[in-house]
Amino acid sequence: MTDKGNATIGTLRVKTGLAEMLKGGVIMDVVTAEQAKIAEDAGAVAVMALERVPADIRAAGGVARMADPTKVEEIVAAVSIPVMAKCRIGHFVEAQVLQSLGVDYIDESEVLTPADEQYHVDKHAFTVPFVCGARDLGEALRRIAEGAAMIRTKGEPGTGNVVEAVRHMRKMNDDIAWVSGLSREQLFDAAKQLGAPYELVRWVAENGKLPVVNFAAGGIATPADAALMMQLGCDGVFVGSGIFKSGDPSTRARAIVEATTHFQEPEIIARVSKGLGEAMVGINISDIPDAERMQERGW
């Protein structure tokens, strides 16, 4: 938070506020300026600028890092909607670089290879807001305590398989319902069990929801997947590999945008789901060795 003339920048309210503006929308992974334009044209509310989509990161193996600044700049220049980019967990210098490039949101992401196995980035130290993945309430509140202004499910990225995102959202809902029914003295113990700050646990118990916006991410590939996550209570959807790894990205992107807005209207979801061509090839989670599961990254 910094005073700048007659204004204050980097407040928590403008950080969480941008996430509020993205609600009900779809954020799409893109690897080129051309893909970014296709996404904007299809009605994306933001794009995630990447070197490779998660499915290709998974296939390539090795160490996955922040995208080349040239690529990020090309994508920033190509579109007028917000641009997000990923830094490695704990890699605060990648985050500093992304902030200096003018990105609008940083995703401290398990999709990239973690740079620190104990600490996440101190996100309060930045003017740019951060989004982080979480599999349950405790993980979400640890990230929020560190300064995250937006949360997303982790899912299992690059699989085209929604099952893990569903698991994480169900767990989040169960945890919130659990703490909401607890008395004051029980909340201290709940905070200990969750590994999360007491004040945040109490806020969730009193308000029955997370203090920031929560999006779905990790494995969403179809309009029905997006609507499923919205009906489970997500505020919006990230689609990673699901669009540009499919047969007809532009049409599929448009269809997922419409299904996210009209998530309670099966007739509309049916209409937009017709003739979309090949969805990305999915991977069964049980076929992925434990060591290669991206959702286990983050602490």
Binding site: A7, T8, I9, V14, P82, G102, D104, V128
Partner: peptide, 9 residues
Amino acid sequence: GRQVDSFEA
């Protein structure tokens, strides 16, 4: 400008 220029006043 961009998000880093977002402000309250």
